[in-house]
Design a protein around this nucleic acid. Structure first.
Lengths: 251, 251
DNA sequence: GATTCCGAACATCAATCATGTTTGTTATGT
DNA sequence: ACATAACAAACATGATTGATGTTCGGAATC
């Protein structure tokens, strides 16, 4: 399954709202049959909607693509950021790890460590299920479709009952002006609960997110202790965060 | 990975307490290198312990083999039992599904149904994560190593806060005299909590379990509403259960 | 110090998966 | 109703992966 082609298709359809199978086959160089199969897949993920002859986009602008697609996005960068974040955690700590693709990488980076970890997504829980030295604590909740992040009152109640040394929080947008933001309201509520039950808050955010703001406000940037981002993060963004009292680490 | 060979090895080692690599290679017809790789795998799962030249069993009699091995055991029968149990559940119900290999099959059988389901293991949660019409509720808790059943105070608290129409409960032993029993104390406590929060309790048990009793007592048989087992369940066992007021279904 | 066992590295085979091609069927438009 | 375009099932192909076997240098045991 060529991830590149899926991305090309997603982008092309999103750009003009709709594309024909023939156009997409020409664009990608793949056969029409392959395009049809791809469209079927993307339709299942809720990215687009099939109609006879083509497909129309279901992603509104400002909406995030599904997990399976984002997971293919710059995995190399995410791993570097995750490794840097993991390095900020000391053995023996208790850590709550947020949902999202970047945080999933953080969870993987903690696999061999000696910690108490509460992951906030099924993905991360699975990644850590066979970790030998880890005390794994799962919160209750409802796994969000596709994302598999745990949400709802059960999740918030589980978090409220516990106190962690560190929270690793992912985001969809993070700026000094708008603070840490997320696309999903339920996710945002869980993030807030996780932050409320942690002594120290570390955000992980690819550079692109530092100039983006999503719908749901989670917390102001000043509430963060550290942000881990990529090396090509724009200086204005990181500077503004530093001015808020946040430590910025580039991976 | 030949499941047959792993079973042969496990049985042979358990029978005589220890076996040499050479013996096992002869017995299974595989090369010594393959046997070594298998032993490494089984050692990771805690089935046996390597020593130079062979391996010795770590499974005490009366102890259950790890999940990965049991999952390969008579999958056909388990699916039939699971289908029968699933048929006892009406659309719209709320159901709590226990951990274990048989209950995992029940979860799979519920995949396309319209229900509210709380699985008590990560395995089952994963199997149901992409179910389109299902409301999935995860309890909190600690995933038990290998088994991935959720245990601990978080799990019991999650269950105590909810009321279900039906509980599907797995077991290690089930007799009219000794009731429903499990190998693991923590699992048993969770089972009890699940049963306490359900109006109706259905146990699933392969025929072999109807003449077995494990360490931890969960509930007396009379507390069950129905038992689903295989068609070749011994008549004395099923008769004794019926005498306790339990409905017995053979799949 | 000799022998036996081990495990890493490579080779091989089978199974699986993604993709393309063919062909009969279905849906759309006139 | 008929013609055409799109579709999807079935099969073919090539690439990738995973299990197994073999060889060989190194380590543990006697």
């Amino acid at each position: 399954m060529s991830a590149d082609r899926l991305r090309q298709i997603t982008d092309a359809v999103r750009e003009s709202g709709r594309r024909s199978v023939l156009e997409l086959a020409e664009l990608t160089g793949a056969s029409e049959m392959t395009i049809r199969r791809d469209l079927e897949l993307l339709a299942e993920q809720g990215v687009l909607e099939r109609y006879r002859g083509g497909a129309r986009s279901l992603l509104l602008r400002g909406e995030e693509p599904p997990f399976a697609l984002r997971a293919q996005d710059g995995p190399e960068l995410k791993r570097r950021i995750a490794a840097e974040a993991a390095a900020l955690i000391a053995d023996g700590e208790s850590v709550v790890v947020d949902s999202g693709t970047t945080c999933l990488e953080v969870a993987r980076a903690l696999h061999h460590r000696r910690l108490t970890v509460m992951p906030l997504s099924l993905q991360a829980a699975n990644a850590l299920a066979d970790a030998p030295q880890l005390t794994l604590l799962l919160p209750g909740g409802q796994p969000r479709r596709g994302e598999l992040s745990l949400i709802g009152p059960l999740t918030e109640a589980s978090l409220a009952a516990l106190r962690f040394d560190t929270a690793i929080i992912g985001c969809c947008g993070l700026t000094a002006a708008d603070g840490l933001t997320a696309y999903d309201l339920a996710d945002a509520a869980v993030k807030r609960a996780a932050i409320a039950s942690a002594r120290r808050v570390i955000a992980v955010a690819e550079p692109a997110k530092l100039s983006r703001t999503a719908l749901a406000h989670v917390i102001p940037a000043s509430r963060l202790h550290a942000v881990v981002t990529g090396e090509d993060a724009p200086a204005e963004a990181t500077g503004a965060l530093t001015a808020e009292g946040v430590i910025v680490r580039k991976a």
